[in-house]
Deep mutational scan, measured.
Amino acid sequence: MEVRTIKVFTTVDNINLHTQVVDMSMTYGQQFGPTYLDGADVTKIKPHNSHEGKTFYVLPNDDTLRVEAFEYYHTTDPSFLGRYMSALNHTKKWKYPQVNGLTSIKWADNNCYLATALLTLQQIELKFNPPALQDAYYRARAGEAANFCALILAYCNKTVGELGDVRETMSYLFQHANLDSCKRVLNVVCKTCGQQQTTLKGVEAVMYMGTLSYEQFKKGVQIPCTCGKQATKYLVQQESPFVMMSAPPAQYELKHGTFTCASEYTGNYQCGHYKHITSKETLYCIDGALLTKSSEYKGPITDVFYKENSYTTTIK
């Protein structure tokens, strides 16, 4: 009895394709271990004539594949690729409408935090270190965002349907971005203890939790000093293409032309909904596939993004 075979390709990165001759009487799992086709788990399936010449994702289970996976995804987590594939199996079914010149995501599976993050990423200057993220990001900007969303979920250790947080998501993504040249110098002034300067680099240099107003941050924000008295913390120097200011959701007025974009969060910790506000020729609110415009805006804002380049204080 002759062994019926077909020729397929296996890959971990969709760049390096490895030619395989597979036995049609055995499952993919018996031949390769966990195997995925377009995100779908085909591990328990036997090869079919229609699979001839198709590319299958496999887990990096030998040295060659491990090197290829690390170079593309910059992670050695053995569960990463499987999590990416199972997320992709959902995100490829989502709709990605162009809204006001940006790629958004039609609401499904509690994905409003991903839509808000995706919209924000198209408006701030950011370059990702893992080629996987950078490639998928370019495709997302062009309207094909399924891979990018699935990668975000995998890097953030999230599953489809789980509630997510924009600030946490951005923080994970910033860790995989090139923020080497970003720098922030802060000064804390206390009447009792004097003053202390701190220099922050990388992710810490672009994120701040405690106030939404970048102007206020430049002037000074009140913080408790270690001595128990009130101290003032203010920005001395900022070198970065953008800054992200966050605070627990509270009524906040966004003035046209003073910011790049913002995240609105309605609801409580267990259950809520994100919308995205962007400042173009007027203010726009993007909620999944829905767009509304207004000249002014007041609502429960939790993150505001500002364009920056270089700032030095005039406070002496």
Score class of each variant (00 low, 15 high):
residue 63 D to I: 03
residue 160 V to Y: 01
residue 244 M to A: 02
residue 216 Q to E: 14
residue 281 E to R: 01
residue 98 Q to H: 08
residue 134 Q to S: 10
residue 275 K to E: 07
residue 223 I to A: 13
residue 181 S to M: 12
residue 230 Q to G: 02
residue 13 D to W: 15
residue 282 T to Q: 10
residue 251 Q to E: 14
residue 196 Q to L: 07
residue 224 P to E: 13
residue 195 Q to I: 13
residue 142 A to P: 02
residue 181 S to A: 13
residue 152 I to W: 01
residue 202 G to Y: 03
residue 179 L to S: 03
residue 110 N to Q: 01
residue 198 T to R: 11
residue 83 R to H: 04
residue 50 S to E: 14
residue 217 F to G: 03
residue 33 G to F: 03
residue 312 T to M: 12
residue 271 C to I: 14
residue 206 V to W: 04
residue 247 A to R: 06
residue 65 L to Q: 12
residue 196 Q to F: 11
residue 155 Y to K: 01
residue 140 A to F: 09
residue 260 T to E: 08
residue 37 L to C: 11
residue 195 Q to F: 07
residue 261 C to W: 01
residue 102 L to H: 04
residue 201 K to G: 08
residue 282 T to P: 03
residue 294 S to R: 10
residue 10 T to S: 08
residue 23 D to C: 09
residue 300 P to I: 14
residue 280 K to V: 06
residue 126 L to N: 03
residue 310 S to Y: 11
residue 276 H to I: 03
residue 81 L to F: 13
residue 115 A to W: 04
residue 42 V to F: 14
residue 234 Y to Q: 07
residue 308 E to I: 10
residue 190 C to S: 01
residue 54 K to W: 11
residue 4 R to Y: 11
residue 238 Q to D: 04
residue 303 D to I: 00
residue 84 Y to V: 09
residue 236 V to A: 09
residue 175 Q to W: 05
residue 51 H to D: 12
residue 9 F to W: 10
residue 6 I to Y: 07
residue 49 N to M: 14
residue 123 Q to N: 03
residue 244 M to K: 07
residue 194 G to R: 00
residue 252 Y to F: 09
residue 282 T to G: 12
residue 25 S to H: 15
residue 38 D to Y: 08
residue 282 T to F: 04
residue 274 Y to I: 04
residue 77 D to W: 06
residue 242 F to L: 01
residue 310 S to N: 15
residue 211 T to L: 11
residue 166 V to I: 03
residue 10 T to D: 10
residue 23 D to L: 11
residue 160 V to L: 06
residue 57 Y to Q: 07
residue 20 Q to P: 04
residue 217 F to M: 07
residue 257 G to W: 04
residue 27 T to L: 09
residue 120 T to A: 14
residue 63 D to F: 11
residue 14 N to M: 05
residue 290 L to N: 14
residue 239 E to I: 11
residue 89 N to R: 13
residue 297 Y to E: 02
residue 95 K to I: 11
residue 79 S to C: 10
residue 157 N to P: 02
residue 121 L to F: 11
residue 181 S to G: 14
residue 302 T to Y: 02
residue 52 E to A: 12
residue 91 T to A: 07
residue 156 C to S: 07
residue 210 G to C: 00
residue 25 S to C: 12
residue 296 E to C: 14
residue 154 A to K: 03
residue 289 A to M: 05
residue 30 Q to F: 06
residue 85 M to H: 00
residue 195 Q to Y: 08
residue 216 Q to V: 05
residue 147 N to Q: 14
residue 156 C to E: 01
residue 103 T to E: 02
residue 28 Y to M: 02
residue 95 K to V: 14
residue 185 V to N: 03
residue 35 T to L: 07
residue 117 A to H: 03
residue 270 Q to W: 15
residue 49 N to I: 10
residue 285 C to P: 05
residue 132 A to G: 07
residue 49 N to K: 12
residue 122 Q to D: 07
residue 55 T to M: 07
residue 124 I to R: 04
residue 281 E to I: 10
residue 176 H to W: 15
residue 141 R to A: 09
residue 296 E to K: 09
residue 122 Q to V: 02
residue 15 I to W: 06
residue 183 K to F: 10
residue 82 G to E: 15
residue 12 V to M: 04
residue 89 N to F: 12
residue 137 Y to C: 04
residue 268 N to E: 06
residue 262 A to P: 01
residue 176 H to K: 06
residue 307 K to H: 01
residue 109 D to K: 04
residue 197 Q to A: 12
residue 227 C to S: 02
residue 78 P to W: 11
residue 35 T to N: 09
residue 42 V to P: 09
residue 185 V to Q: 08
residue 213 S to F: 03
residue 103 T to A: 08
residue 108 A to E: 11
residue 221 V to F: 12
residue 112 C to W: 06
residue 316 K to V: 15
residue 10 T to I: 15
residue 206 V to S: 01
residue 276 H to N: 08
residue 129 N to M: 09
residue 80 F to T: 04
residue 50 S to F: 11
residue 140 A to S: 09
residue 203 V to A: 13
residue 145 A to F: 03
residue 76 T to L: 14
residue 29 G to I: 06
residue 198 T to S: 09
residue 248 P to C: 01
residue 196 Q to A: 08
residue 72 Y to A: 13
residue 29 G to W: 06
residue 234 Y to N: 00
residue 50 S to H: 07
residue 229 K to W: 11
residue 192 T to S: 13
residue 98 Q to L: 10
residue 224 P to Y: 09
residue 138 Y to I: 14
residue 226 T to W: 07
residue 11 T to R: 04
residue 273 H to C: 00
residue 84 Y to Q: 01
residue 228 G to K: 02
residue 187 N to D: 06
residue 118 L to K: 08
residue 48 H to R: 12
residue 87 A to E: 10
residue 279 S to F: 05
residue 181 S to Q: 15
residue 16 N to C: 09
residue 51 H to K: 01
residue 6 I to H: 03
residue 172 Y to C: 13
residue 217 F to Q: 06
residue 9 F to P: 06
residue 225 C to E: 00
residue 163 L to S: 06
residue 238 Q to R: 01
residue 275 K to A: 05
residue 281 E to P: 00
residue 129 N to R: 14
residue 153 L to M: 08
residue 75 T to G: 02
residue 280 K to Q: 12
residue 79 S to H: 11
residue 254 L to E: 07
residue 178 N to C: 06
residue 49 N to T: 09
residue 99 V to N: 00
residue 124 I to T: 03
residue 186 L to T: 12
residue 149 C to V: 13
residue 113 Y to P: 05
residue 188 V to R: 06
residue 280 K to M: 11
residue 173 L to R: 02
residue 272 G to T: 00
residue 224 P to C: 11
residue 219 K to S: 10
residue 218 K to T: 04
residue 285 C to N: 12
residue 95 K to Q: 15
residue 183 K to Q: 12
